[in-house]
């Protein structure tokens, strides 16, 4: 049976149900069914990282996960990180460091960095570079992206402190 069927998960804190063919990727389901178009498709074969979303705390390539595999999971997309009016510390650091130009790869890099810094707010430059090497950017040359993520670490440390208290 290849016809559409419902899949339930949580996106950016809200419950969602999508009714999709089994072949549908999570990225396509988010974009086309939920109209969360901030998640971009740059290659659809798991190399460019533009479609990175966070599933149960782990950054994953949205084109390499079936929507059906996300049943019951908690998903965070770029739209869940902050709004245009209320950018997060990470997003603000990107703006400050000119860490984006065309903006197409940006969502995937933000979600990747968010997942990383949430787990590893003390990640060093080499670790950040290693992690971001799973995301392609053709505009910036990566330097400002690394600088922005380095700067944003402090905000995640604060979050960790609050959580600890």
């Amino acid at each position: 049976m290849t016809s559409a069927r419902p899949v339930h998960f949580t996106v950016n804190g809200a419950a969602a149900t999508v009714t999709v063919e089994p072949r549908t990727t999570l990225a396509d389901a988010l974009r086309n069914e939920l109209r969360l178009t901030g998640t971009h498709l740059g290659c659809e074969h798991g190399v460019c990282g533009a479609c990175t979303v966070i599933v149960d705390g782990a950054a994953v390539r949205g084109c390499l996960v079936l929507a059906a595999q996300a049943e019951g999971r908690e998903i965070t997309t770029v739209e869940g990180l902050g709004s245009a009016a209320h950018l997060s510390a990470l997003q603000l650091a990107f703006r400050k460091h000119h860490a984006l130009q065309c903006g197409f790869c940006t969502a995937g890099i933000l979600t990747t960095a968010h997942a990383l810094l949430t787990e590893e707010p003390h990640a060093d430059e080499d670790r950040i570079r290693e992690v971001i090497s799973g995301n392609l950017c053709r505009c910036t040359g990566y330097l400002p992206i690394i600088a922005a993520i380095m700067e944003a670490r402090i905000a995640y440390r604060d979050v960790q402190c609050e959580a600890a208290q």
Binding site: H45, G46, L64, L66, Q69
Partner: peptide, 26 residues
């Protein structure tokens, strides 16, 4: 069989594999 799908999904995207059913052991 699909688990993480990190090798299988690209092959499906290129239509280099076309199984009629995926059995998710995840």
């Amino acid at each position: 069989v699909i688990a993480g799908g990190q090798s299988l999904m690209p092959m499906l995207a290129f239509r280099l594999a076309a199984p009629s059913v995926l059995v998710d052991i995840g």
